Simulated scan of single mutants.
Amino acid sequence: MSYSVGQVAAFAGVTVRTLHHYDKTGLLSPTGRSHAGYRRYGDADLVRLQQILFYRGLGFSLDETATLLDGPQAKVLAQLRSRQQELRAEIARLQRLDEATERAIEVQQTGVSLRPEERAEVFGEVAFDLSYATEAQVKWEHSDAHRQAMARASAHTKEDWRRLMGEAAAWRAELLAAFDDGEPGDGDRAMGLAEEHRQHLTRWFTPCPPDVHRRIADDFAADPRAFALVVPQSGQRPGLAAYLCEAIHANARRSGGSRTESEEDR
């Protein structure tokens, strides 16, 4: 069975012009012609074309491909091994670039410019969910406060993060103790912890007025990924996120923070 140049081009995903060029250079000349003089490709031609496309896909030039197709087997094997080593080196280079890009993305999304091993050392169980970080970045992309918070976070040193996380751990222990002791969410102890959290955000990231703190609290109650940034999974209790949200709202009312119309409608 034989095929026209158009059929072969469609089979192989190449252009007719490419097949004409292969014929002109002698790389792939069809074995047949129609009565009208048109090129006709047989099964053996298709096998050779498949080999050509394979070698071209590996990055070999047309001249190198011709040598591989028509040269001795030992030389073909040597060239393939050489190309394999080049590809492995390139894969390793691209892997390093991928890792660097991933780290750059994480820095942009989370504001944390620590190396992965430093993250594990400093943050422990507290994990940044990149899907949440991305959504937050989109949600607050026009917020000057968010941009300021990200800028300050990215400027923190490893020692800054140690101190920050130490404060957060001590605060978290007090929060869990108040919750386990049955302290009311709108009581003085819980509201005091809410105020400490607000001051912590102001100290390390950006000024956090009561209305902004309310919105953060609502995220804690609505999205487990947000709450996991303050209380990792191992320390969570049923109802704890809602408890913290209640405490923050109560503290905002005590501080005189007014609720906006959009917040009233939620």
Rank of each mutant, 00 (worst) to 15 (best):
T15L: 08
P30E: 02
N251S: 03
D181K: 14
A66N: 08
D219Q: 12
D129N: 01
R81I: 07
L193H: 02
S82H: 15
R198S: 07
A133D: 01
S34C: 11
S4T: 15
P238V: 15
Q199P: 03
S2Q: 13
A66C: 03
E263A: 05
P210E: 01
E167I: 09
T18V: 10
V8Q: 05
H35C: 03
D181Q: 02
D188T: 02
E135N: 14
D43K: 07
K139M: 00
R56P: 03
R83P: 04
T101E: 08
E174Y: 05
A10L: 04
R96C: 07
D43N: 10
D180M: 13
C208R: 06
Q51N: 09
R225I: 09
M1Q: 11
E167K: 06
T157E: 10
E99Q: 15
G32T: 05
T134F: 14
F54G: 08
P232M: 12
V5E: 02
L130T: 00
A155G: 06
I91E: 08
M191W: 00
G239V: 11
E246V: 00
A177C: 10
D180S: 06
S143M: 08
Q109D: 01
Y41I: 15
A136R: 03
E196K: 15
D129A: 03
A168W: 06
P207D: 02
G166R: 11
L77I: 10
R119H: 10
T31I: 11
V76N: 05
A133Y: 04
Q236P: 14
M165T: 04
D265T: 12
T67P: 06
A104I: 12
H249R: 11
H21S: 01
Y41P: 14
G182K: 14
R162Q: 12
G111W: 00
Y22T: 07
Q109A: 14
R83M: 03
P184H: 11
E64H: 07
A12M: 11
T101P: 01
V122E: 00
T18R: 07
M191R: 14
A190F: 12
R253C: 08
S29M: 09
L176I: 15
H146T: 12
R96E: 14
